[in-house]
Design a protein around this nucleic acid. Sequence first.
DNA 1: ATGGTTGAGCGTCAA
Length: 272
Amino acid sequence: MPRQRGKLRVATWNINSVRLRLGLLKELVAALDPDVLCLQETKVPDELFPIEAPQALGFPHALFRGMKSYNGVAIFSRRPIAPCDIAPAWCAKSDCRHIAVQVDAKGGPLELHNFYVPAGGDIPDRAQNVKYAHKLDFIAETRNWFAARTGLARSVLVGDLNIAPLEHDVWSHRQLLDVVSHTPAETEGLTAWLNAGFVDAVRHFVPVDQKLYTWWSYRNRDWRLSDRGRRLDHVWVTPDLQGSLRRHVVLKDARDWPQSSDHVPVCVEIAV
DNA sequence: ATGGTTGAGCGTCAA
């Protein structure tokens, strides 16, 4: 897929340690050739970030926000970017789950948000599980913040949102209703956030009655055979951009790369 | 109901 002027190709990937998978980033770039690459779970503090990597991969512009061991987000870009520090510290934590930039585009700058939503632990009960409570609070805060952004336009939101909102975003809707990532509180909360100002750019291309996953657990002996996947990774755009959506890729082959992440890259091309 | 695997970084915790 050669790049074209006037088109912006945005990819998102939960890389599950950027230092461990620098070689796979090269594979990703070869496969998708994105203009902008958003990463989650980089798992590295900023002072230890492999700062030469984006340049070596052909991205002269980069911004990252990380911490020791957990979380961490990064944006690599072929086009100039400017940090966009307008959002609050979600849930009053500084836990490196969000980074935003303005990206140069032909028709004017785009606002790009890269999120890593809390996974939420195992027990789907906010009284018993503070991680689940944090997850629900996080998506309520983000929803309210975007809903208050009057005139929000030319914006793209990507990331590991750790929720599979639709029935066919999971391998078994019935069996996952009480599994964190697909509980009604989460799917309703994520849908409310989406509806606060965005459309689902990947479901724009893939009908809602078709199964679609971006994550397969490490705990399955044969992920492709059992195919117990979930769609946790998302690309949203503001409605003014919906008519500019051109193509999408869920790079399922990446799940078979050596020492792969348990998430696969998702990519959308927008004519902007 | 349980266990299954991986990463960070050395304790287990988080996913």
